[in-house]
């Protein structure tokens, strides 16, 4: 039996008196792309932040490659964070640096100062996300989709074992969304990374997912394949899949 790369058990988180995660259980297996669906404000991004130690749970456990990470101190998390790349919702590019320096940042921080090596790796990373030729632009001059692609180039320049995508297609037009979805698939096939994609975009889910989980009221309500999700008769799943609000229309 394959051991999960990330094993989450009974994760509980409260923010401002509200229980966001209520005992969430989930396993992420090596090499798979798991899509986590759920309503906006349902705790998907909060959950993602726990996986990289940006938030600490009230209770519960997250085991990454056999190590419990919820009890680690900030500096003890650094070796784990080097193995996990994260794409933030709006890219979170460093606005004082241009595209080249943003993408080169992780390399330089990990001790690579040879300009030729840095140039070559940045060029390769930017080519993977179709952003060649934009090296000297500042983040403020990039569109939302371009920012996300640069952020992805930054996340993959030192190839991680896992990539966490926070709403990779939110706010993008269908064409750019499609290019991001293809990119996620391409990264999985080329770099063999394990991916967790948080989204509420069903099109994106169908394009990239090996497995799908639905987060509802702080717990995993459904876990299965995209086909099982489409065939499910559970009203909560159907509302989500069919895009129904559940409210009466007058």
């Amino acid at each position: 039996m394959i051991e999960p790369l990330i094993h989450v058990q009974n994760l509980v988180q409260r923010i401002g008196g509200q229980e966001i995660l209520r005992g969430l259980n989930l396993d992420l297996f090596p090499g798979e792309t798991l899509v986590l669906l759920g309503k906006s404000g349902g705790g998907k991004s909060v959950f993602l932040r726990h996986l990289i130690g940006l938030m600490r749970p009230v209770s519960g456990s997250i085991v990454f490659e056999g190590s419990e990470i919820t009890t680690l101190k900030e500096r003890e998390l650094e070796p784990i964070r080097r193995k996990i790349g994260m794409l933030f919702q709006d890219g979170a590019l460093f606005d004082s640096m241009n595209v080249f320096d943003n993408v080169a940042f992780p390399l330089r921080e990990r001790g690579e100062h040879d300009p030729a090596v840095v140039r070559e790796k940045v060029a390769r990373s930017l080519a993977m996300v179709n952003m060649t030729g934009h090296e000297h632009k500042m983040p403020v001059n990039l569109s939302g989709g371009m920012r996300k692609r640069v952020a992805l180039a930054r996340a993959i320049i030192s190839p991680p074992d896992v990539i966490l995508y926070d709403e990779p297609t939110a706010g993008l037009d269908p064409i750019v969304s499609d290019s991001i979805n293809r990119l996620i698939r391409r990264l999985q096939s080329q770099l063999r990374v394990t991916s967790l994609v948080v989204t509420h975009d069903m099109v994106s889910c169908n394009r990239v997912a090996d497995r799908v989980a639905l987060l509802h009221e702080g717990r995993i309500h459904f876990l299965g394949t995209t086909q099982q999700l489409r065939d499910a008769q559970d009203p909560i799943i159907r509302d989500f899949v069919d895009g129904r609000s559940g409210e009466t229309v007058y």
Binding site: I52, E78, P79, M86, F88, Q89, D90, A92, F105, P106
Partner: peptide, 16 residues
């Protein structure tokens, strides 16, 4: 940097 998640990005990139 804090409110635009750039500090979270630093932390996520294993930079204190």
């Amino acid at each position: 940097m804090k409110v635009t998640q750039q500090i979270d990005a630093l932390r996520a990139l294993a930079v204190n």
